[in-house]
Write a protein that binds this DNA or RNA. Sequence first.
RNA 1: GGCCCGUUCGUCUAUCGGUUAGGACGUCAGGUUUUCAACCUGAAAAGAGGGGUUCGACUCCCCUACGGGCUGCCA
Length: 441
Amino acid sequence: MTTTRFAPSPTGYIHVGNLRTALMNYLIARKSGGTFILRIDDTDQERSKEEYVDQLKRDLEWLGLEWDRIERQSLRLDRYAEAADSLRAMGRFYEVFETPTELDLKRKKQLNMGKPPVYDRAHLGLTEDQKAAFRAEGREGYWRFKLDQERIEWTDGILGPISIDAASVSDPVLIRADGQVLYTLASVVDDTDMGVTHIVRGSDHVTNTATQIQIIQALGGAVPSFAHHSLLTGPQGEALSKRLGALSIKDLRAQGVEPMALLSLMARLGSSDPVELRGNMDELIEGFDITRFGAAPTKFDEQDLFPLTAKHLQTLPLEAVSADLASLGVPAALAPRFWEVARDNITTRADLAGWWALCRDGAAPVIAEEDRDFVAQALALLPEGPFDDQTWGQWTAAVKEATGRKGKGLFMPLRLALTGQAHGPDMGALMPLLQVIRARR
RNA sequence: GGCCCGUUCGUCUAUCGGUUAGGACGUCAGGUUUUCAACCUGAAAAGAGGGGUUCGACUCCCCUACGGGCUGCCA
């Protein structure tokens, strides 16, 4: 039974990078008929906010990533305490008293001497008397996990064989002086308890994985299979973290990006499979393969979302946009034709407003100097409204007859005069919707 | 500084020693369409640099450069 999880910490809005992780885990679970858990990693009480939890759920719902189970770490504190006790009992946990300032100084010294900045285990064998002395100074102890200093190896689902020497990593702090359980421990306990079998996360967790494997083993859990995807960078290869604020799911949604466009891109970007618009979640699941992803950092350009959004909108039936049309004030009787005409010419739903304004109010005509006479002559031949399906064909035929113009030289000036734009819907279909011809006067 | 990963067309990438280095997106050019778009066809476009190993290297090894990550009493 495959079980995956998405474990965001609610300290901000989720962004495209988070989505990529969430989606991969979701697709793996769905592909195998397994379970997808949404786990709120809210052990950090100071930074976690309920507002972010709510928005996170809204984002996932909007995207259609349904979770089978939801968990919150803040509700599982006693489980972490039990795990800590058993680590203490087996001698893998030790209490230390260095202050952040002392640790910082130590690291700087090590760096200056050209040594790796790894915790030196100075407080590893502290006696009870020594601990009491530190406490007498007003210090509070916190707890580190004692790593076995051997090479830790695993076969990563994306990176392939990875080998990290535990000696190059500091013994991780798992419980803070104030008693707060840290991510490294909470995550491992949860993954084990919840039966998580596959973990896909960003490659920023690679080193964590090494230490977590040892913790899982110490606790007697089964080591899940890990896959670390590359991190997204901006179009120039710059770290995306600087712009992540602007790339929240919430904001992309506000910009008019459609869920399937976003999902289609994120399920393929960085893989060797082509990015192609998928119509629904099932197709996405069908076409997903984690082994196709590469280890190199992946450039992400949010502009790529818009062509996909446009393409997606073109596939939508009237029902999918009728609410949008109604709120624009498009009469129900005109809605089917309007959607037919407009849908090939919009990037986002918001663009509908412009086309409707054109139909309702007409457009400021654009008439080139050399076409002035031609357009005037043509307008004289344009019948009074309302127009129908035949109007454009009959009118242009008459204009052709009268002026001798044909092809682009015939049509483009008329398009510009009527719509003010060189690009736009099929004129024949648009004519019946045009209620005002401003070029006429 | 240390550790881990990476570097092939503009972009995402294929190639598990021998290929005209392939595809997708984008770009450009034609074509089709009495207009726009769509569509069809075609084209341009790539192995970071230097050493090895080998009959032969994009592919294996080493070095350098560059990019990303980690190096927290954050996640």
